[in-house]
Amino acid sequence: MTTRAVISGGGDPDHDLVDRVLGGDRQAFASLLARHQKKIFNFMYRMVGERGAAEDLTQEVFLKVYEALPGFRKAARFSTWLYRIAHNHCLNALKGRGREIAVSALTKEPANGNPVTALADPSASPEERLEQQELQAVVQEKLAELTPEHRAVLVLRDIQGLSYDEIATALELEDGTVRSRLHRARMELKERLRGYLEL
């Protein structure tokens, strides 16, 4: 039995919103958007490394979701189906538009405008905060050096916290494939970060 069959969409509160959207309720779509846009935008941001590109891709994904909603069969959670569309759209965009990440742009953003560094530990000293900013920028840069497939599984598991089952459904992979791919991605990122991690 595949992992996709294990995932059940029963009891998903989003299903009621989906029904309402299909009935023409635009407010219900606004509710779906409010519930999920932050996750999808962050997924896109970690995948492409640019806020503008992430914003464009997030917008395209939700428009695609809106059009594809009649085909959503509720066999899985809405969020998982949404991640699947977002992942496929992102991979197509990276391949088709040559949007491989230019992470260096992140480090050029001002500190107060950098969404990552702005969330650094407020109790840290200015020197520690600067160090955290630099380290997070390095993580994003090294993340961008991975293949999109390895990057996606790291983002979904270690940054967004999805379960193996949800990742398997979203990426349309077997459960064992997810685990092995996640391990290889972590080991590869560890090697790329080795110089920054060793004390």
């Binding site: 635009r26 779509f29 606004a30 958007l33 409010a34 846009q37 932050k38 935008f41 962050n42 941001y45 970690r46 806020r51 992430a54 914003e55 997030t58 917008q59 939700f62 428009l63 809106y66 969404p115 990552v116 969330l119 380290l135 997070q136 993580v139 994003q140 993340l143 790291l154 270690d158 940054i159 972590r186 080991m187 990122l189 560890k190 970060l193 080795r194 991690l197 060793e198």
Partner: peptide
């Protein structure tokens, strides 16, 4: 090192969504 790598990833906080994104999406449907 692997523990620190995972901790770094989990320590990356969520990026704030641009305020205009929701309106742009709803205007597009």
């Amino acid at each position: 090192l692997l523990q620190r790598t995972i901790a770094l990833l989990r320590g990356l906080d969520e990026v704030e969504v641009p305020p205009s994104l929701s309106a742009a999406i709803q205007a597009g449907i």
